[in-house]
Nucleic acid binder design. Structure first.
Length: 269
DNA sequence: ATGGTGGTTGTACCA
C-alpha cells in the first residue's frame, strides 16, 4: 500500500478586523478545509486577538499586533514553528520611526510562511508612498538573501501587496490614472520581489479577465465587478514547483459582514 | 454630498 501524497492547503486573506470577522473567518477556514492561513489587517493588539476561537478548531496561531492598525497572523493546523516578527531591514514609519505590525512568519510543515501587509501608499505625493517603496525594496533584498542562502528553501510570501502589477489587475485603467497601486514605481517594486526569485502561483490557475481579490466597499464596486487584484501568493522556486492548484474565493466577498478582500487559496501537493 | 462604506476609536484616522 502506498500513501497518497500529502497535500497542504494554504491561504492568504486581508480580513479587515479579526474581531468583527471572527465568525466568518472560522466558518470559512472549516468550509475551505485550509491548513495554513496568513491573515492581514487583524486591527488588534495581541491581548485582543481571539486565539481561543482558532484553538477550538485545532489551529495554532502566531499573531503580531501593536494597536488598532495593521496586524498580521499565521494560523496553522499542520505545525507552527520558529515564529519571526518582521524581516531583516524592514523599514519603520511614524514619528519617531518605528516598526509596524506588517510581517510575521512561521514554519508550517517545512514551509516558511510569511503574512505580509504592504503599506498602502495613500497617494502619489504622500511620504507614505516612499515608505511603501522602501518596504518592498527591503523585502526583495531580504528574500533574495534567503534564496541565496538556501536555493532549495520552501518560502511563501503571502499577503496584501497593495499593488496591481498589470493593467489587467484593475477594473479600469483610466480610473487609476494618477492613483496609487498602479504607478510604475510601485509595479517595479513588486517586480523586484519577483526578480528576487518568487513566483505568483495563483495567476496561472486564475487568469480570467476580471479576476480580482479586492473590491472597495463604496460605490457598489463588488456588485459592479469593479475590483483589483492586489493579494498574492509568491513562492520560492522549490515550493512553486509543488503547487497543483489555486483559486480566489470570490463567494466570501458576498453578503453582509464581508471583508473587502476575498481569500486566496493554493494547494501544495 | 465628491470617501457614497466600513473598521476602530473617540469626536479623527485609516483603507
Amino acid at each position: 500500500m502506498s500513501e497518497p501524497a500529502q497535500s497542504t492547503r494554504i491561504a492568504t486573506w486581508n480580513v479587515n478586523s479579526i474581531r468583527s470577522r471572527i465568525d466568518r473567518v472560522t466558518a470559512w477556514l472549516e468550509r475551505a478545509d485550509v491548513d495554513v492561513l496568513a491573515i492581514q489587517e487583524t486591527k488588534a493588539r495581541d491581548t485582543q486577538f481571539p486565539f481561543d476561537r482558532f484553538r477550538d478548531l485545532g489551529y495554532e496561531v502566531a499573531h503580531h499586533g501593536l494597536n488598532q492598525w495593521n496586524g498580521v497572523a499565521v494560523v496553522s493546523r499542520v505545525g507552527l514553528d520558529d515564529v519571526q516578527v518582521g524581516f531583516e531591514g524592514m523599514p519603520g514609519w511614524g514619528d519617531p520611526v518605528a516598526a509596524e505590525a506588517r510581517a510575521i512568519s512561521a514554519v508550517c510543515r517545512g514551509i516558511r510562511i510569511w503574512s505580509l501587509y504592504v503599506p498602502n501608499g495613500r497617494s502619489l505625493d504622500d511620504p507614505h508612498l516612499q515608505y511603501k517603496l522602501s518596504w518592498l525594496a527591503a523585502l526583495a533584498t531580504a528574500g533574495r538573501g534567503w534564496l541565496a542562502a538556501d536555493p532549495g528553501a520552501e518560502v511563501a510570501l503571502l499577503g496584501d501587496w497593495n499593488v496591481a502589477p498589470t493593467d489587467a489587475d484593475v477594473w479600469s485603467v483610466p480610473f487609476f490614472e494618477g492613483r496609487t497601486h498602479v504607478s510604475p514605481d510601485e509595479r517595479a517594486a513588486f517586480e523586484a520581489v519577483v526578480d528576487a526569485g518568487f513566483v505568483d502561483v495563483v495567476r496561472p490557475h486564475a487568469s480570467e479577465p476580471g479576476t480580482f481579490t479586492y473590491w472597495d466597499y463604496t460605490q457598489l464596486r463588488f456588485q459592479k465587478r469593479q475590483g483589483m487584484r492586489i493579494d498574492f501568493a509568491l513562492c520560492s522556486p522549490a515550493l512553486a514547483g509543488r503547487v497543483v492548484g489555486a483559486a480566489i474565493d470570490r463567494e466570501e466577498r458576498k453578503g453582509k459582514g464581508a471583508s473587502d478582500h476575498a481569500p486566496v487559496v493554493f494547494e501544495v501537493g
